[in-house]
């Protein structure tokens, strides 16, 4: 039981990083990325091949590139960077030319191509068999399972804290406002001279970096990775979780992911198998589908809508100007609260 909770915490923190990153892309910048998990996978692979060193004696068993043995923090950063750079390439090619729903199709297609490539081109990351024996980080090799789990949890929390800081700062800054403006109406944003392309590109790349970080942490935690770990479905579920939780609001995104990505799959593991073996998994997917549609229908801004977040806060003291005791007029009076009657969501 204790281990179960620790495991839940560790995976929860890692999933929260993904949620925060994807939410930056979809919730703030309005880019529908249906292949987010591909970037998680890239991070995982990079994290693995840069820490695994040369494979053990029968070298034919696993073939993969690089075979470095970097210290794990370096590998972690590298994973983020590589995922970010790939995200940059992808988004630069497509973002200017496509309307948002075609862009969604392109993201899925690219995800499939990457998946095909990794699965079939064995020298890259050992093909369909994937990588195993990824080294533990910290003192994981000797520590007990539960200690290691908690350690990973700790590291993931630190990374998560940094990511949340970034996303929160963006959310409250003029840059975040530009992103939201583009999301609402990119023609209006352009008509006021806002940098519509570069703003979105940055948000997308930062989201991909976070995916890469999460992927590397995941592979350090579970010590193995293969193509079955990043089927297209994972990205869809992640996206569904964000939409359910409340796109735009990172707390909603984290909550959605925790419940729908993690809790459900954990529960599923502990449920007895009745009927055919796949029944429980299928039930989970059906549940997610139904909740998704019901939420979009009846609560279009998600369970925790964006408007519950404080829109804006001008940091106190950080500069001159403004009369003494001047209260930022834009700061809403309530921080979190139930929406007032008459506030409308998506129309």
């Amino acid at each position: 039981m204790l281990y179960f909770i620790a495991d839940l915490l560790a995976l929860g923190a890692i999933n929260a990083i993904m949620a925060v990153g994807l939410n930056l892309q979809y919730g703030q910048a309005g880019i529908l990325n249906f292949t987010y998990y591909t970037f998680v996978a890239i991070g995982a692979y990079v994290g693995a091949v840069t820490t695994m060193g040369h494979p053990p004696v029968p070298a034919s068993e696993e073939t993969f590139i690089l075979q470095w043995s970097l210290p794990w923090p370096v590998a972690l950063l590298l994973a983020g960077v590589v995922a970010g750079v790939l995200g940059l390439f992808m988004v630069l090619v497509v973002i200017r030319r496509l309307r948002s729903d075609y862009l969604a199709i392109v993201t899925v297609s690219l995800g499939f191509i990457v998946w095909d490539l990794i699965t079939n081109y064995v020298p890259l990351f050992n093909g369909a068999n994937g990588l195993f024996n990824v080294p533990y980080i910290l003192n994981g090799a000797t520590a007990s399972e539960i200690t290691y789990t908690l350690e990973v949890f700790g590291v993931a929390m630190v990374v998560l804290a940094v990511c949340v800081w970034v996303v929160r700062s963006i959310f409250r800054s003029p840059y975040g406002r530009v992103l939201r403006a583009i999301r609402e109406d990119d023609v209006v944003a352009a008509s006021f001279g806002k940098a519509t392309t570069s703003s979105r590109v940055w948000a997308f790349v930062l989201g991909c970096v976070m995916a890469g970080l999460a992927g590397a942490l995941l592979v350090f935690y579970v010590n193995a990775w293969n193509p079955q770990g990043f089927l297209a479905e994972e990205s869809f579920i992640l996206m569904a979780a964000i939409v359910i939780g409340g796109p735009g609001n990172y707390w909603g995104a984290v909550l959605g992911t925790f419940v729908f990505v993690e809790l459900l799959s954990e529960i599923e593991r502990y449920l007895p198998n009745f009927g055919n073996g796949a029944l429980v998994g299928a039930g989970r997917a059906v549940l997610i589908g139904i909740v998704l549609i019901v939420v979009i229908r009846f609560r279009p801004d998600g369970l925790i809508p964006e408007r519950w977040l404080r829109w804006y806060r001008v940091p106190a003291g950080g500069g001159q100007g403004g009369p003494a005791g001047f209260q930022s007029p834009g700061a809403p009076r309530r921080r979190l609260g139930w929406p007032r009657v008459g506030q409308r969501g998506e129309i």
Partner: peptide
């Protein structure tokens, strides 16, 4: 920008905002 408050609709429009650049905003 229908889902944003009136105030944000206004402030958004100001030109040359320093905090609009991603790195500067951070």
């Amino acid at each position: 920008l229908t889902r944003l408050p009136v105030m944000e609709n206004l402030v958004f429009a100001a030109p040359n905002q320093i905090g609009e650049r991603p790195l500067q905003s951070l």
